[in-house]
Design a protein around this nucleic acid. Structure first.
Length: 876
RNA sequence: GCGGGCGUGGCGAAACUGGUAGACGCAAGAGACUUAAAAUCUCUCGGCCUUUGGCUGUGCGGGUUCGAUCCCCGCCGCCCGCACCA
């Protein structure tokens, strides 16, 4: 009888080796079975995996293993999102080359992932910093350029004057560079952009079809794309106030219905008319400068005061040429939305109202709520921006806001100013084109050459890849590619004259926008194997953090469309199913307070319970440590648990099982030592029960019981199988865990009975059937333990290559049901009755129950509600 | 400000989205085995009461219903996203 404890340190590497040798997880593109593509967001190679990775990959692995057992041809690859700033920071701080640092990190993280026993096809692995990968990205960039999906334009960027580099918005903290602490400047630079806005409408519309995405993510994308319906209106500038060469101002509005409530026009400080005015007037120039600076300082915009300055320009109202309005430059008007100019309707917009009150401009109420009274309706400190009835609006009076919108839109569309319509209906999007230029070394070089005569010339495809030079220095700030002695000097591919290579590299979000496509044929000499990509895509189940809800997922959706337009794939949507998992969180421990607060790692303390209160003490000297709030694991708060330590002491299966238990997968899971021990106890218990009974089960074939003592065991096993199957389909791992516990609790006794030699052959066969089902149910979560159990049961095949069991319908359906019997909605009794008993039989049987008679005490039921197979409610 | 989500035992949570509230796990308590400890096993575990029974209970207040954790209305409290988008 095998009674030794299960030893994961021995078993886990042993089974990993067997899976490896049998190439169980290598996927054949030619396999004709139905495909299933599972993918977890690939990691940045920071050096160590953390618990968040463990949870993410454990979930993906359950899906992959489950689908494989269900007979699908599963693709489950892994790679590395390997370009990016941390590698350059390491180079600056520690004088290591970014490539060396990155590949070393990949090597150590890979061995950590391997220790988790994930069913990954490592033969398809790549890193985005491999030339073999990024060269294809350069090919596609050139294709996109030809298709007009890439362009250059001047754009404002956050410029760090100390580090000499562009900063992303997230890297600007309170107006200062996150590394240098220098005041960030706004600079106009010529940058490369992807034309994501070409797809605004399609990216929005297609969200409706992504019914296997979380509603929350679809909504976030919808808001980000930000579609609004309105119109552009051209306002004629009054001749004598017009700057030279200017005759009109175009504004964008979603409320043309409120046009009679206009009292001013406001333009952005970056608007051409503003620049023009600034050139002539020092006061205006100073104001514009001020606005520009304030814009970068991320000061709470909520409280930002509305400010403006009169340009002296006057415009004519489009519906009444005799009505002249002033044009202001205002700090709340954005140049890159709409046209950079608005008309202010103070009664209908809070910002306009604040502005009008400050500068003494008229406030004319034009929309009144439906239940308002024209005689008394007035606008005080709060603008009314809702729907209603038009007032003070001449020919629009009495119309609804919708009607007024259409009347004004029609009228201005058919009126003309100069040779063009005065107004046009226009749909606007909040989404902006994607700026991909980064002044950094560790990224994919943008494959173009700048020639004085020929302009911007794409690198001819025969000259690709443009490889990053290896001999670069990081001893000074700025882009090492810019100061490399030779790399940037090339001959123009057109005219052969001396030309300059582009030294900007691509945003790393580009790398992650198509890696899932590359996995479908990573060996291909073109970016994609067209047929393979179309066959595997979309990814059936994508799993990752909610933090990528907008950027990464939206960029990938765009990139897939762009690849389709350039003939690299024939799918539009990259991810059919999306799941966003919660974080792994942990208690925090600290001593001291305020500035001298010091965080303590969980590994350095022990928890004791004194008088029912949990208290923490330092292991080294028993000093008491304060237990703080539960927070995301982070290095700064030291509340991290290293997966390596957990795998070393409990094994990978325990770690996997624990992060899948308890909390629903989309919610945060609290890591606790006690919880892990609970999970570990389960693995030991399962092993003990199975291994002790194994010998007694060796002479029977698994056969579910049809009657007798073992019937209940077979029924529960098959019901659990059906339920867990559904749980796995829906990614309800915590429910699957709970049901598996229930099954183990129920068959623990029978297994012990069998082990003691006290069961007949039929009973043993039923227990064996239940045990096999149990082992197969846990296999996706704790694959090593399951293989070990499978093997001790005398199976000589790999469980990883074994088909999912089938439940027996007859065992899943109950013949008798237990119905709760309520009297006036309160449960008073239980009734066991045949599942297909008719209503009369059920109510008669319910009324005949002793408990029911006692509570009724002679009262005559007014009504008896029988919900078949659910409940009986007697109303008196 | 706008949009979305969530409030269930000491804790993480379940409840087939209108039908037995608290499955399963953690923590705690009692007991068995043991020289002892660990491990393991058994039992108890929302609150209150007059305890073979009863009342009450899913953030708070109402409503619909034979019946509400679930649906509707109004509050309270947390969390997340976007944020001067015209």
């Amino acid at each position: 009888m095998a009674t030794e404890r299960y030893n994961p340190r021995d078993a886990e590497p042993r089974w990993q080796k067997k899976w490896n040798e049998a190439k169980v997880f290598e996927t054949d593109n030619a396999d004709p079975r139905e495909k299933y593509y599972v993918l977890e967001m690939f990691p940045y190679p920071s050096g160590r995996i953390h618990m968040g990775h463990v949870r993410n990959y454990a979930m993906g692995d359950v899906v992959a293993r489950y689908k494989r057992a269900r007979g699908y041809n599963v693709l489950h690859p892994m790679g590395w999102d390997a370009f990016g700033m941390p590698a350059e920071n390491a180079a600056m701080e520690r004088n290591v080359h970014p490539a060396a640092w990155t590949y070393q990190n990949i090597a150590s993280m890979k061995s950590q992932l391997k220790a988790m026993g994930l069913s990954l096809d490592w033969s398809r692995e790549f890193a985005t910093c491999d030339v073999e990968y990024y060269q294809h990205q350069q090919h596609m960039f050139v294709d996109f350029l030809e298709k007009g999906l890439v362009y250059r334009k001047q754009s404002k960027v956050n410029w760090d004057p100390v580090d000499n580099t562009v900063l992303a918005n997230e890297q600007v903290i309170d107006g200062r560079g996150w590394r240098s602490g220098a005041l960030v400047e706004q600079r106009e630079l010529t940058q490369w952009f992807f034309k994501i806005t070409d797809f605004s409408q399609d990216l929005l519309d297609a969200l409706d079809g992504l019914d296997q995405w979380p509603e929350k993510v679809r909504l976030m994308q919808k808001n980000w794309i930000g579609r609004s319906e309105g119109m552009t209106i051209r306002w004629e500038i009054v001749g004598e106030t017009a700057p030279a060469g200017e005759t009109e101002v175009t504004v964008y509005t979603t409320r043309p219905d409120t046009l009679f409530g206009a009292s001013f026009l406001a333009i952005s400080a970056d608007h051409p008319l503003a620049k023009d005015a600034a050139a002539k007037n020092a006061e205006i120039d100073a104001f514009c400068e001020d606005v520009r600076r304030a814009g970068t300082s991320l000061a709470a915009l909520e409280t930002a005061e509305k400010r403006g300055i009169d340009t002296g320009i006057r415009v004519r109202h489009p519906l009444d040429p005799s009505w002249e309005l002033p044009v202001y430059i205002a700090n709340f008007v954005l140049m890159d939305y709409g046209t950079g100019a608005i008309f202010g309707c103070p009664a209908g917009d809070q910002r306009d109202l604040d502005f009008a009150r400050k500068y003494g401009l008229p406030v004319i109420p034009v929309v009144m709520p439906r239940d308002g009274d024209v005689a008394t309706f007035a606008v005080g400190d709060t603008a009314y921006d809702g729907d209603g009835v038009m007032i003070n609006s001449r020919f629009l009076d009495g119309k609804s806001t919708d009607e007024a919108f259409n009347i004004v839109a029609d009228r201005l569309s058919s009126a003309s100013l100069g040779n063009a319509p005065q107004g046009e209906r226009k749909v606007n999007f909040r989404l902006r084109d994607w700026g991909i230029s980064r002044q950094r070394y560790w990224g994919c070089p943008i494959p173009v050459i700048h020639c004085q005569d020929c302009g911007v010339v794409p690198v001819p495809k025969k000259d690709l890849p443009v490889k990053l030079p290896e001999d670069v220095t990081f001893d000074q700030p700025g882009n090492p590619l810019d100061r490399h002695p030779t790399w940037r000097h090339v001959a123009c591919p057109h005219c052969g004259k001396d030309a300059r290579r582009e030294t900007d590299t691509m945003d790393t979000f580009v790398d992650s926008s198509w890696y899932f496509t590359r996995f479908t044929a990573p060996w291909e000499s073109k970016p994609t194997d067209f047929a393979a990509a179309n066959r595997w895509l979309p990814v059936d189940q994508y799993i990752g953090g909610i933090e990528h809800a907008i950027l990464h997922l939206l960029y990938s959706r765009f990139f897939t469309r762009a690849m389709r337009e350039t003939g690299h794939v024939d799918v539009k949507e990259p991810f059919k199913g999306l799941f966003t998992q919660g974080m792994v969180v942990h208690e925090t421990y600290s001593r001291g307070s305020g500035m001298s607060r010091e965080w303590v790692a969980p590994a350095d303390i022990k928890i004791e319970e004194l008088d029912g209160k949990r208290r923490a003490f330092l292991l080294s000297n028993n000093e008491e440590i304060a237990i703080g709030s539960i927070e995301k694991m982070s290095k700064s708060k030291k509340n991290v648990v290293d997966p390596d330590d957990i795998i070393a002491s409990y094994g990978a299966d325990t770690a996997r099982f624990f992060v899948l238990s308890d909390s629903p997968p989309e919610r945060d899971v609290i890591w606790s030592e006690a919880g892990v021990e609970g999970a570990h106890r389960f693995t030991q218990r399962l092993w003990r029960l199975i291994s002790e009974a194994a010998e007694a089960l060796s002479d029977v074939t698994a056969t579910p019981a049809k009657d007798g003592d073992a019937l209940a065991i077979s029924q529960l096993a098959h019901k659990t199988l059906k339920a867990v199957q559904n749980d796995y389909d829906k990614l309800w791992f915590n429910k699957a865990v709970a049901r598996i516990y229930e099954l183990v609790n129920a068959i623990a006794g029978p297994l012990t009975t069998v082990a003691a030699g006290k069961a007949d052959a039929a009973y043993r066969a039923a227990v064996r059937d239940a045990a096999e089902i149990l082992v197969q149910l846990v296999a996706p979560m704790t694959p090593h333990l399951a293989e070990e159990c499978w093997s001790v049961l005398g199976q000589d095949t790999l469980l990883s290559q074994t088909a999912w069991p089938k439940y027996d319908d007859a065992l899943v359906v109950e013949n008798d049901v237990v119905l709760p019997v309520q009297i006036n909605g309160k449960k008073r009794a239980e009734l066991t009755i045949s599942r297909d008993a008719d209503q009369t039989t059920v109510s008669d049987a319910a009324l005949a129950l002793e408990d029911v008679k006692r509570v009724l005490n002679g009262q005559v039921p007014k009504k008896i509600i029988v919900v078949p197979q659910r409940i009986v409610n007697i109303v008196v």
